[in-house]
Measured scan of single mutants.
Amino acid sequence: TGEEYIAVGDFTAQQVGDLTFKKGEILLVIEKKPDGWWIAKDAKGNEGLVPRTYLEPYS
């Protein structure tokens, strides 16, 4: 389980392990790392690192 967040901007993977997403996408945050990069999963089940500055809590 995780917390749902909504993307407030588009993000394109910079390196292997990053997750590309579009503004408005709902992501499930699995782990919040202290460096500001969180592990998240998208609706298709893809998992990767995302920058927390692009996310806001979804309710």
Rank of each mutant, 00 (worst) to 15 (best):
K32P: 04
L19Q: 01
D35R: 03
D18S: 11
N46C: 09
A13Q: 06
A43I: 10
K41A: 07
K41Q: 11
G36P: 04
E25F: 04
V16N: 11
G36I: 05
Q14R: 15
W37Q: 07
V29G: 01
Y54V: 14
K23M: 08
A13V: 03
K23Q: 08
E47H: 10
G36K: 04
L27K: 00
T12F: 12
V29M: 02
I30G: 03
V50G: 01
T53M: 11
G24E: 03
K41F: 08
R52G: 12
G36C: 06
Y58G: 06
A43L: 12
T53P: 06
G9F: 14
E56M: 14
D10R: 03
L49D: 03
R52N: 15
I26V: 10
G24C: 06
V16P: 14
D35P: 02
Y54Q: 10
G24S: 04
D18P: 03
K32S: 04
E4C: 11
E47F: 12
K32E: 05
D18C: 09
L49P: 05
Y58M: 14
Y54H: 15
V8C: 08
K44P: 03
G17W: 05
K41H: 08
G9T: 14
A13K: 06
L49H: 11
E3M: 11
G17Q: 06
G45R: 04
K33L: 12
E47C: 14
A40C: 08
Q14A: 12
P51F: 11
A43Y: 11
E3H: 12
R52I: 11
I6G: 02
G48C: 02
T1P: 12
L28E: 07
Q15N: 13
L19S: 01
K33V: 07
A13S: 11
G17V: 04
K23G: 04
K44I: 10
P51Q: 09
K22V: 10
Y54W: 08
G48I: 02
L19P: 02
L55S: 00
N46A: 11
V50D: 00
E25Y: 04
I26D: 01
G48Y: 02
G24D: 06
S59M: 11
K44G: 10
N46W: 05
K33R: 14
S59A: 13
W38N: 01
I30Y: 08
G36F: 05
E4A: 15
G48H: 02
F11W: 12
G45E: 05
V50Y: 01
Y58R: 08
Y5Q: 02
P57G: 05
G36R: 03
T53V: 15
R52C: 13
G24W: 06
I6D: 01
F21Y: 03
K22T: 10
P51I: 05
S59L: 12
A7Q: 01
A13L: 04
W37L: 07
N46K: 09
A40G: 04
L19M: 07
L49Y: 14
D10W: 04
V50P: 00
F21C: 05
E47G: 06
K41E: 05
A7E: 00
K23I: 07
K32C: 04
G24T: 03
P51C: 12
F11G: 02
L28N: 07
Q15E: 10
I30M: 12
Q14P: 06
T12Y: 15
P34S: 13
E3T: 12
V16H: 14
L49M: 08
K23R: 12
R52H: 14
K44F: 13
A40T: 03
E31F: 11
G24I: 01
L55P: 00
Y54M: 14
G24L: 03
G24F: 05
G2M: 13
E56P: 01
L28I: 12
E4K: 15
E56H: 10
A7K: 00
L49V: 13
F11E: 01
L28D: 04
E31M: 11
W37D: 05
S59I: 12
G45W: 04
K22G: 06
E25A: 12
P51A: 07
P34A: 15
F11R: 08
W37H: 07
A13E: 05
G48S: 01
V16I: 12
L55R: 00
I39P: 03
K44T: 10
D18M: 15
L27F: 06
K41P: 00
T12N: 12
K32F: 09
S59P: 09
R52V: 10
A7P: 01
L55D: 01
W38V: 04
E25R: 02
T20A: 10
D10Q: 04
V29P: 01
K32H: 05
Y5S: 01
E3L: 11
P34N: 14
G9Y: 15
W38S: 01
K33E: 04
T1Q: 14
Y54S: 09
I30V: 10
G24V: 01
A13I: 03
P34R: 05
P51W: 12
G48M: 02
L28T: 13
T12K: 09
V29N: 00
Q15C: 09
A40R: 00
E31C: 08
K41R: 15
G24M: 03
D10K: 03
D42K: 04
I6Y: 06
